[in-house]
Design a protein around this nucleic acid. Structure first.
Length: 348
DNA sequence: TAGACGTGGCA
DNA sequence: TTGCCAAGTCT
């Protein structure tokens, strides 16, 4: 058994010398720290940087974000993925603005009640911004801690998370924010999923898995879900003004984002029903693409409607509109639709 | 509880 | 090309 203080001291010393520069590490503003933690969920640091800087530039205060329309907030999240994070963060910030005097709560129990704040975000924001004694348990910490203890418990189980939070609590009674970030940084830079740099690890002598030669087998994760494949038909409908038809999604997936009308291949007559007009559709796809999500694949055929009908005089259903090709930045599109846009842009 | 929820990087 | 992984949360 090793000294807890010795382990912590070595880890923090390594962190002081080796941590990466990040814009959110140069602020003590709890709102900015909170935003960064939301953006960093399941997302790599280098991807987040630009989004973070643009976001705080446009919404520099809680009040600014609180007053914004959801469509604009989503526009600033466009391309980052997991868009419910943006909707939930917006909701939570409005909550703070209205019910907490526009001040991020210091009480972990109150903060945890906000929309989109789970155990990780609670611990991260509370420790980094307010030095509250809570341990962050994220993917990095699961990996680092399971290896340090040669622990093969399933990290997907809630019980394992709880156990880790308790086991780590002695380390976060002081300097909690620094310790938490050091654990995560070690996981990101040294104790990596593949090819970990054990020879350069500042706490190698505390690592049971290194001693036992089991590093590559940890952490243990149980569930692997198989992707479903969904065939989709997308329709590029142009009018005589060289505008193209777009539709606002009303679904859990990519909710409230725009798309070219899309129907599952098994329901592809939907476009004619929706418009209540008979649009000639090209019989062969003008483009085929696959778009990968975590849990499914869209196998997309893109069809083009060549029509002489002046659809500008046809009344459109709710949540549909004609978009000028030069106005794409006025709408928020998922990446799959941006790919299609880039293709058809050449033809206009 | 297990599956839904985006996207890009990497071996 | 394919599958896993990246500072998770919601239902």
């Amino acid at each position: 058994m090793y000294s807890e203080a010795n382990f912590k001291s070595k880890l923090i010393h390594w962190f002081d010398e080796n941590q990466r520069q990040m814009p959110w590490r140069e602020t003590t503003n709890p709102y900015y720290i909170w935003l960064s933690e939301v953006m960093l969920q399941q997302t790599q640091v280098n991807t987040v940087r630009e989004y973070y800087l643009k976001f705080i530039n446009r919404f520099p205060t809680i009040s600014d974000l609180s007053k914004a329309e959801e469509d604009e907030v989503l526009k600033y999240w466009e391309g980052l993925g997991y868009y419910s994070r943006a909707r939930n963060f917006h909701t939570a910030v409005k909550d703070v603005d209205e019910n907490h005097a526009a001040t991020v709560p210091r009480d972990p129990e109150i903060f945890k009640k906000l929309k989109g704040v789970g155990p990780y975000t609670q611990a991260a924001v509370m420790s980094i911004a307010f030095d509250q004694p809570l341990a962050t348990v994220d993917g990095n910490v699961f990996r680092v801690w399971s290896r340090l203890n040669n622990d093969n418990r399933d990290t997907k189980l809630q019980s394992t998370r709880k156990a880790y939070e308790i086991e780590l609590s002695p380390y976060v009674q002081s300097q909690s924010g620094t310790f938490n970030q050091a654990m995560m940084e070690l996981g990101a830079l040294v104790c990596t999923p593949k090819n970990p740099l054990c020879l350069f690890c500042p706490v190698q002598q505390h690592c049971e898995a290194f001693e036992q030669g089991t590093v590559s087998e940890l952490p243990v994760k149980s569930k692997k879900i198989k992707k479903k494949n969904v065939k989709q038909h997308v329709y590029i409908i142009k009018n005589l003004n060289d505008e193209v038809l777009i539709e606002k999604r009303k679904a859990k997936l990519l909710n409230n984002m725009w798309e070219f009308p899309m129907y599952e291949a098994t329901a592809s007559e939907g476009i004619n029903q929706a418009l209540n007009i008979d649009i000639p559709i090209s019989t062969t796809p003008i483009k085929h693409l696959k778009h990968q999500f975590t849990h499914l694949t869209w196998d997309i055929d893109v069809f083009e409607a060549k029509t002489a009908v002046d659809h500008t005089k046809t009344e459109l259903p709710e949540e549909m509109t004609w978009m000028k090709m030069t106005d794409k930045e006025m709408y928020n599109f998922p990446v799959s639709m941006t790919k299609i846009y880039e293709f058809i842009k050449k033809q206009f």
